[in-house]
Design a protein around this nucleic acid. Structure first.
Length: 216
DNA sequence: AACACATGCAACCGCCTCTAT
DNA sequence: GATAGAGGCGGTTGCATGTGT
């Protein structure tokens, strides 16, 4: 069905959020809670798209966010969950309290992928690269983003038959030996109701540098 | 010091799903 | 059952910063 744009693009700001916008958003949600995102910007006096407000809130302003480096345990958990769920970042995020899907997605793409590759593991199939490439030769892997850094030939969508992405993704979850609770029946993770609080401490630092202040 | 390239993160885009009418 | 609106998600892009030459 044809969809109208989610907002009047001509009258909305785009790009990095300013401190004032953040404050307005936080103040509004603090007072009214998360309600209708579409009408929120207007009600809060923001020249932003509702989606943009939602994203900003979920990814940065929510008080229960845990910011900072991922721990080894979190790394392992992400890898394990990705093996089972595939790129279901929101579901993965649901099992990592304080982490957002966007954060995990970025972390996966920038760190974990590389980490797995350096271990000789295909980040998509979670199989050893040698075996994966050998096995994949005729049939598999629509790995569009094997990106660049990937080794081994991968098939192109037009040349391959059915994709056998293995265990993960769409087939039944395989039990994981890690001792982690991987009962993945999809139920929304327990997320405490937001108890709105002032902006995160490092918010100032992050702002205006487009978030780079978190760098080491 | 200046430049080019690499990296990492915030934010946007477009599609899908769910729900109300 | 069909349609429209809103929320949600995953993929992708833009750009500031770091690093190497």
């Amino acid at each position: 069905m044809g969809r109208s744009p989610c907002c009047e693009k001509a009258h909305t700001n785009k790009g990095a959020w300013t401190k004032e916008e953040d404050q307005r958003l936080v103040a509004y949600i603090k007072a009214h809670g998360e309600g209708c995102w579409r009408s929120l910007p207007k009600a809060a006096g923001l020249l932003r798209c509702g989606k943009s407000c939602r994203l900003r809130w979920i990814n940065y302003l929510r008080p229960d966010l845990k910011r900072g480096n991922f721990t080894e345990e979190e790394d392992d958990l992400i890898i394990t969950l990705h093996k089972i769920l595939g790129n279901k970042w929101s579901q993965i995020a649901g099992r990592l309290p304080g982490r957002t899907d966007n954060e995990i997605k970025n972390y996966w793409n920038t760190h974990i992928k590389r980490k797995l590759l350096s271990r000789g593991i295909d980040p998509k199939t979670h199989r050893p690269i040698v075996a994966a490439t050998a096995a994949a030769a005729p049939s598999c892997s629509h790995r569009q983003d094997d990106d660049d850094d990937d080794l081994g030939p991968s098939c192109s969508p037009e040349t391959s038959g059915p994709c056998h992405h293995s265990d993960d993704d769409d087939s039944a979850p395989t039990p994981h030996p890690g001792g982690i609770d991987l009962n993945l029946s999809i139920s929304p993770p327990p997320r405490e109701p937001p108890s709105p609080s002032p902006l995160p401490d490092d918010e100032d630092a992050r702002r205006n540098t487009k978030g780079q202040a978190a760098r080491p």
